[in-house]
Simulated scan of single mutants.
Amino acid sequence: MSDDRAAQLQSLSIDRSEPEASNSPLKVIVAMVLAALVSVLITWWWMNGQIKQVRSDAATAIAAAQENIPVSGSSAPATAPRASGLVASGYVTARRQATVSAEITGTIREILFDEGSKVEAGQVLARLDDKRAIISLRQAKAQTESARRNVQSLQARIVEADIVLGRAQTLADKAIGPKAAVTAAAAALKTLQAQLAGARADLAASKANVASQVDLVERHVVRAPYAGVVIAKNAQVGEILSPSSAGGGFTRTGIATIVDMQSLEIEVDVNEGQIGRVSPGQKVEAVLDAYQNWKIPAQVVAIIPTANRARATIKVRVSFDEIDARVLPDMAVKVTFIE
């Protein structure tokens, strides 16, 4: 009995040699937190080192670009340094730019160009409906032919009247015919001569009318005033073209806009306080916004002798030393006036 009771008491005693099971989850959590902190510290240290390296590389590249030294490991060539001097902004403009129209009002029958087309001086751009003008021309030619026939008829009658006068004069000299016949024949001859002069005047007027009608027909053809490039097509077949805007919104005043690409230059607005640094013939370095690595040699053509009161600037014209196909009207450009 005492042995059983001792065994039961032994089973109820606490064994101090085994670890407490309740502390195991807490240690696991602590270990996980410590591991996370170590991982974060390692990541921060590595990223900080990379940022410093990037900043160092960027500073090296900037310094190399300023000193015109190629960066190691880069195959791109270093750009040439910009010229020093006054810098101003402007735009490419064309000295010869025109909106072409007809000299008369008419309906467009045919258009023979498109945007971007190169045209020569005198090239036909469009034709207007010229049916009525051609009818008037034919009528004028018929009147001219009638006047020519009338002149020929009067010339023949004058020849006959001159013969009659000579015969009458002969008979009168021989006292065979009356002198009245001579007077009548002479009067008839003078009348025919006067009629011939009038007919010739009518013939000249008819010829002038024909020339006028020919010119009118030619005015129905629109031609390029000079060689250039069409940059705008302002009308279509079937629309009314007129040199004036009397027809309102339904009438086109121009059929095309042509630019002479050989007349391109730069217009720059220079501050009044800096205009003393600019002079005609001065060398200029131009850089288009579209091609910032392309430096174009140019020179000052003229300083416009007037100021813009609102902007306190003076306009300066700059011409290119050579015209390039990449230069287009209205391109933005920065120029450096080399000093």
Rank of each mutant, 00 (worst) to 15 (best):
R5Q: 05
K190D: 06
T105R: 08
E218N: 12
S24G: 07
V151S: 11
A235E: 02
A21V: 15
W294A: 09
R317K: 15
V229Y: 11
L86D: 11
S39Y: 13
I255D: 03
K295R: 15
Q139I: 11
D330A: 10
D330H: 07
L26P: 04
P19M: 13
A184G: 14
K27N: 13
I275H: 10
R95C: 02
Q236E: 11
N23H: 00
I62A: 14
R16Q: 12
L288F: 02
R219S: 05
A208D: 08
L9H: 06
M1A: 05
A227G: 01
V222Q: 08
Q299T: 03
V230T: 03
A325D: 07
S117A: 09
A290N: 03
V87Q: 06
A140G: 09
D114M: 14
M32P: 02
A227T: 00
P297G: 03
T257Y: 04
A204D: 14
G166P: 00
N209Y: 03
A184I: 10
A88G: 08
K334M: 02
R127Y: 11
K52I: 01
V217T: 03
I231Q: 00
E110F: 01
P178K: 14
K52Y: 01
R200C: 01
P305M: 07
W294C: 04
D260H: 00
S212T: 12
A21Q: 07
S75E: 12
Q139F: 00
V259T: 08
A312Y: 03
A181M: 07
Q236W: 12
M261V: 15
K52L: 10
L165T: 13
S206H: 04
L26H: 05
R223N: 13
A307H: 11
G249I: 03
A256S: 12
L288W: 03
A185L: 06
A64L: 10
A161L: 08
S101E: 02
I240H: 09
S84N: 04
V71Y: 03
L328A: 06
K283N: 12
T43R: 06
Y226D: 05
E265Y: 11
T43N: 05
L171T: 03
S153M: 02
I240Y: 09
R109A: 06
A21R: 15
A310I: 08
A188W: 01
S17C: 02
N23Q: 03
T191M: 13
